[in-house]
């Protein structure tokens, strides 16, 4: 049994890891994660890479939507912008360590433009504005053939760091998870900073925040830009991981996927982004496994897999919203508390 943690100052309250137990668990988790290419199967590694990419993008959307309360349905398109930037720069001989940040920066610049209506409209109007931006961007992906390769798609050269080439899932794994770890740490630290507190103030009541001295224009635009930066970096890594991409990948369903991951995980928490992305990536896999197992008794089940996936996806979103609005992060917190207080009742 671990006793409760009592904070005596604001600084202690805001610490990233509030106890030595937590620090030790974190270290164990990181050790397990970064030795995974040594013990994991090929399937597990490929899935882990996809989860890592989704975690980065979800962290970004959670900053925009969860922390600052600005709905964005254009997140999938920002991921696409990052991916195409890396593809185009890679073909023109720009090294990977420049191309990846450039992908993030270009996405962030577009995020600023898309975020502009957020000054005049909010809530549902903002959702529609970002929806429109999403369709305009995907239209560009399909039609601007010299740069994006049009509907057939384009290929992306491998990432290459001073002669070390990231080919194969094992090498990409380290690239993706190093970036994901830094991204998560940065998101957590942003939440503790002046900007993170301004985001929350804007989310709760933007005019009150303005009266308290938060500059609405720059705060809202910053929230959009940072979210889009994460999406751009995730898109770049996605490009390096797959090696080729078509505009179909960045359909509206991708934006909805990230929103769903944010909601299922928990709005406004870093842990929620990680758990949400993990959960939402593995649900279709679990369904596929279930369909595979039951196909010997019900032969037609494979054809139903895709539609049933949609049904389960929708049911999960609604189920979490109605029964657990704070998401997986809240469930995780409850489980932790139970262990802390055991054998006493919470």
């Amino acid at each position: 049994m671990r006793t409760g943690v009592f904070h005596e100052s604001f600084r202690a309250e805001e610490r990233l890891w509030d106890s030595s137990t937590q620090r030790r668990w974190m270290l164990a988790f990181l050790l397990a994660l970064f030795t995974m290419p040594l013990w994991g199967s090929d399937y597990l590694l490929a899935m882990a890479c996809i989860v890592g990419i989704h975690v980065i993008a979800t962290l970004g959307l959670n900053l925009t939507t969860g922390n600052a309360g600005l709905i964005s349905l254009a997140h999938g398109a920002f991921v696409g912008v990052g991916c195409y930037t890396v593809a185009w720069l890679g073909k023109h001989g720009v090294p990977f360590w420049l191309a990846l940040p450039a992908a993030g920066l270009l996405s962030a610049a577009l995020g600023l433009v898309v975020g502009l209506p957020s000054l005049r409209v909010k809530g549902i109007y903002l959702a529609v504005a970002t929806l429109a931006a999403h369709f305009v961007l995907t239209f560009v992906f399909r039609e601007w053939e010299p740069v994006t390769g049009g509907v057939p798609g384009t290929s992306i050269p491998r990432a290459n760091l001073f002669g070390f080439e990231f080919h194969g899932d094992r090498r990409n794994f380290y690239l993706i998870f190093t970036v994901a770890f830094v991204a998560a740490l940065a998101a957590r630290n942003l939440g503790r900073s002046r900007f993170g507190r301004a985001f929350v103030a804007v989310r709760e009541r933007d005019f009150s925040a303005e009266i308290l001295g938060v500059h609405l224009l720059s705060t809202k635009l910053l929230a959009f830009a940072i979210g889009a930066f994460y999406a751009g970096v995730a898109g770049g890594l996605l490009g390096y991981f797959y090696g080729a991409i078509t505009p179909e990948y960045f359909a509206l369903t991708l934006s909805v996927f990230y929103l769903a991951a944010v909601i299922v995980g928990g709005l406004g928490t870093v842990l929620g982004s990680i758990l949400g992305a993990l959960f939402m990536t593995f649900v279709p896999e679990a369904l596929r496994l279930a369909a595979h197992l039951s196909s010997q008794w019900f032969p037609g089940v494979a054809a139903l897999l895709l539609p049933m996936g949609q049904v389960v996806f929708g049911a999960l979103i609604i189920g979490f919203l109605v029964f657990e609005p704070h998401g997986l992060a809240a469930i995780w917190g409850r489980i932790r508390r139970t262990f802390h207080l055991w054998p006493f009742k919470t």
Binding site: I71, I263, Q310, G314, L316, I317, L321
Partner: peptide, 21 residues
């Protein structure tokens, strides 16, 4: 707003999947 919006998107997904199934 984002919660209610996502609920209707979830609903759309369920109906769409059901119809295709």
């Amino acid at each position: 707003v984002v919660a209610v919006l996502m609920a209707t998107i979830g609903l759309a997904s369920i109906i769409h999947g059901g119809v295709e199934a």
